[in-house]
Amino acid sequence: MRITCPYCGARDAQEFSYLGAADPVRPDGMAAAEAAMADYVYLRDNPAGPHRELWYHGSGCRSWLIVTRDTRTHAISAVEPAKVRKAGEAA
């Protein structure tokens, strides 16, 4: 598999490590109920189709990336830096 890092360009997937779904948002640990945190930690969708997921370019620029990958074909339709994206969401 190849992932096109928005900073480094197309690289072999061996340079990256996978974490999981990108969309769950960590609740504030002081404010949230235990159940909400349990959802964040454990509950994930398992879509057959496009999936937004976190990859870490550990052998490259050390950026966390949000990769949109079709789980059926491995076709990758988008790769964005998580930091930029998450900062935007928070703002």
Partner: peptide
């Protein structure tokens, strides 16, 4: 320039 992996080494 590139940061990459060679023979499993960064």
């Amino acid at each position: 320039a590139a940061a990459t992996s060679v023979a499993h080494l960064g």
